[in-house]
Simulated assay, not measured.
Amino acid sequence: MILNEKIIKVESKIGYTFNNKCYLLEAITHKSCTVDCGYDYERLEFLGDAVLQLYVSQFLYRNENLDQGQLTVIRSQMVSRKTLTKVIERLDFEECFIVGKSVRDEEGKIKGSFLGDFFESILAAIYLDSDLQKVYKFLRKIYKINGDLIIDEDYKSKLQEILLKTTKKLPKYDTIQNDEYYESTVQLNEDVFRGIGNSKKEAEQIAAKNAIEALI
């Protein structure tokens, strides 16, 4: 794949067309190729990490009525390398990154957490090419589509199992969609447990998780 094709494919996958293609080119270039081109993604990754942390922190502060410790746990899940790597894999443009042979495994796939690093460098490239609002628009779409990646455990099934053993009843979820997120509640006796997420599934999983934590 020639360089221009790589740029076009990445822009198509992320839904953003760069005014200055140099930002994107830098964002998708690993330092193993620095000798060939003279630049790499690492400085952009540094900036992109801060932009991502700010967006997720603001989102959780405005939409989750949780204490600092709980907010920190959810944020760490949303910005983890595991989550970001899976997002890039779903966007399906791994072959567009400019990397040396040492960065790829025997099957030709990029090793370790590098895909997550590239996600952050692309965020920074969008920010420098436009503004913070464009980055936030991109991230809202990303987390809405990939919200299921944040929840590693199936808390709904666990809650159902607990209730069937103790009350012989199934949990019932009430989920509504707002402009930027989904809100779900599950009621156990007189107590109502709430979850906020970027998808219906994610919101219900978080509500179930909060209910389980109260029961244990």
Rank of each mutant, 00 (worst) to 15 (best):
I145V: 11
R140C: 06
D148E: 11
K134Y: 05
Q133T: 13
E153N: 11
R140I: 03
E153P: 01
L149V: 01
V135A: 06
K144A: 12
I151C: 14
Y155M: 00
Y143R: 08
L139C: 07
L149A: 02
S157R: 14
S157G: 15
I126A: 07
D154W: 08
I142Y: 02
Y127K: 13
I150D: 01
L128I: 09
D154R: 07
I145K: 15
K156A: 04
A125Y: 06
D154S: 11
L149Y: 04
L139Q: 09
S157T: 14
L149P: 06
L159G: 09
K141P: 00
Y127S: 08
L128W: 05
G147C: 04
L132S: 05
D131P: 15
Y136A: 07
D154K: 10
I150K: 04
R140Y: 13
V135T: 12
L128Q: 11
D152C: 06
L132F: 11
I145W: 01
I151D: 15
Y127N: 09
Y136C: 06
I145T: 10
Y143M: 07
Y127C: 03
Y127Q: 08
K144W: 00
Y127E: 10
K158N: 02
I151S: 15
K134E: 15
K144Q: 12
R140V: 00
Q133D: 14
Q133C: 10
K144Y: 01
D131T: 09
I150H: 03
I142E: 00
K134T: 13
L149R: 01
A124T: 03
Y155G: 07
Y127R: 10
G147D: 00
Q133I: 14
G147I: 09
K156L: 10
L139K: 06
G147E: 00
G147H: 01
K158D: 03
D129P: 04
I145Y: 01
K134A: 15
Y143T: 02
Y136R: 06
K144V: 00
V135R: 01
A125W: 03
L149G: 03
Y136M: 08
I126C: 03
I142A: 06
S130V: 04
Y136D: 12
I142P: 02
K156R: 14
K141H: 11
K158A: 11
D131N: 15
D154T: 05
N146V: 08
A124G: 08
A125M: 09
L132Y: 12
D152P: 01
E153I: 15
S157E: 12
I150E: 02
I145L: 02
L159Q: 09
I126N: 04
D154L: 04
V135D: 04
D152S: 12
Q133K: 14
K144I: 00
Y127D: 05
